[in-house]
Amino acid sequence: MNNFQINRALAEMRALAAQAGSQTKAAERTAESDFGDAMKQALGTVNALQQDSGDKQAAFVRGENIALTDVMIASQKSKVAFEAVKQVRNHLLEAYRTVSNMQV
């Protein structure tokens, strides 16, 4: 191989490395935004369930035509959803603490 072929091969390798690096960064950004979007969606769902539960409880107290079972089911759904989000938060905090305590 002469110098020209070596330089050409190195240039191709650098171009491929740069392309692979940009694809990896794009994939990381996508994964981060996917997780963030999933968390936002989960929090939105929990919020909607809690509002629905509160509305049904208020309607029942006002004497509107709503079954007590519907009120209790809505209350339990919001409770379970909130507990699930709370557990995800706890696991994230624990993972953060573990990583921050690692020695480099």
Rank of each mutant, 00 (worst) to 15 (best):
G44V: 00
M39Q: 04
Q87A: 15
Q19M: 09
Q19K: 09
Q103H: 13
K25C: 05
H91V: 12
M102S: 12
T30P: 01
G44L: 05
G63V: 08
S53V: 02
I66N: 01
L16R: 08
Q87N: 14
R89P: 02
Q103G: 12
A31C: 03
V71I: 10
A67K: 10
V99P: 10
M72N: 07
N101G: 15
A15H: 01
Q57M: 04
I73G: 01
E83V: 13
A84S: 09
F82H: 07
V85I: 10
V104F: 14
K86M: 08
I73A: 04
Q19L: 11
S75N: 13
Q51N: 02
A58W: 03
A20N: 12
T30Q: 11
G44C: 01
A9V: 09
A38E: 06
A59M: 02
N7E: 10
N90I: 15
Q103C: 13
K25Q: 13
M13R: 01
L49F: 04
L16K: 10
K25D: 08
D55V: 05
F60C: 01
A81G: 06
D55I: 05
A42G: 02
L92D: 11
L43Q: 03
A67D: 04
K25F: 08
T24C: 00
R97N: 15
D52E: 11
